[in-house]
Simulated assay, not measured.
Amino acid sequence: MAKLEKGYVQIYTGNGKGKTTAALGLAFRAVGDGMKVIMVQFLKSNKTGELNSSEFHAPNFNIYRFEKRRGFVWTLNDQEKLELKSEILQAYNFVVEVIKERKCDILILDEIMAAIYNNFLEVSMVTDLIDIKPDDMELILTGRNAPKELIERADLVTEMKDIKHYYEKGVAAREGIEY
């Protein structure tokens, strides 16, 4: 089983497609080398292909979600936003436990930037995660609008940039490709 001598903090951000896909690619590579990977998805509650794929790699790759199914953030009423914030805080507390108990080699916090951007988490909460991360654990953070404070703390930052996208021609998100 491969073991990381040194774990780094990586960020996949930007408006372009591929942030979660890049994190998943890293996850499948790591699992193939015998590492344990945990992905916690924020602001995702609908069916996605990665949920099915991860089942083939359990127990070395697990995806966790804490939110019940509901619409996009901008469609929610105040009560639904409060419920969502509570679910996101539950996910955050799970992440703290994963880190403190070193339950994996690679921890992916998918769309955590969106949780920050939508005021469900504070930037300082995520910098706290970086501070308590074991030296031999890799931490991957994804999502648009990465805050400057996190970019400064990261060891690797990749920005996905739209140059051309078929969405502009009216193509909707496709099962197996975008989700």
Results as ranks from 00 to 15, higher is better:
Glu83Thr: 05
Glu80Trp: 04
Ser86Gly: 13
Cys104Asn: 02
Gly143Cys: 11
Gly176Trp: 09
Ile116Val: 14
Val96Ala: 05
Lys103Met: 08
Tyr167Thr: 13
Ile88Glu: 07
Val95His: 02
Ser124Asn: 15
Tyr166Thr: 09
Ser86Cys: 07
Val95Pro: 00
Gly170Met: 13
Val171Glu: 01
Lys85Pro: 00
Pro147Asp: 10
Leu82Asn: 14
Leu107His: 02
Ile106Cys: 00
Gln90Val: 12
Val123Thr: 15
Arg153Gln: 10
Met125Phe: 00
Ile99Asp: 00
Leu139Arg: 11
Lys133Ser: 09
Lys133Ile: 03
Asn119Ile: 03
Cys104Pro: 04
Phe94Ala: 05
Pro134Tyr: 07
Glu152Asp: 09
Thr142Pro: 07
Val96Gln: 11
Thr127Pro: 01
Asp136Ile: 07
Glu159Ser: 08
Asp162Ile: 14
Arg144Glu: 00
Asn145Arg: 15
Ala154Glu: 00
Val123His: 03
Tyr166Ile: 12
Asn93Ser: 06
Glu175Arg: 15
Leu109Lys: 09
Asp128Cys: 01
Ile116Leu: 11
Gly143Gln: 14
Glu83Trp: 06
Asn118Tyr: 14
Ala172Trp: 12
Arg174Ile: 14
Ile151Asp: 04
Asn119Gln: 12
Glu111Leu: 02
Glu149Asn: 12
Asn119His: 13
Glu138Phe: 00
Leu141Ala: 04
Met113Leu: 01
Glu138Asn: 02
Val157Phe: 05
Leu107Val: 03
Cys104Tyr: 04
Ala154Met: 04
Ala154Leu: 01
Ala173Asn: 12
Asp110Gly: 04
Val157Ile: 05
Asn145Lys: 10
Met137Tyr: 07
Ile108Gln: 10
Ile106Met: 02
Tyr166Cys: 04
Ala173Lys: 11
Glu168Pro: 07
Leu82Phe: 06
Ile112Asp: 08
Glu149Gly: 07
Met125Glu: 14
Ala91Pro: 08
Glu83Lys: 14
Leu129Asn: 09
Leu139Ala: 03
Leu121Cys: 05
Asn93Arg: 15
Ile163Asn: 08
Val157Tyr: 06
Gly143Asn: 10
Leu84Ser: 04
Asn119Lys: 15
Leu82Met: 13
Gln90Met: 13
Ile140Pro: 08
Ile88His: 09
Leu107Phe: 02
Glu175Ala: 12
Lys148Ser: 11
Ala91Tyr: 06
Met113Ser: 14
Glu83Asn: 13
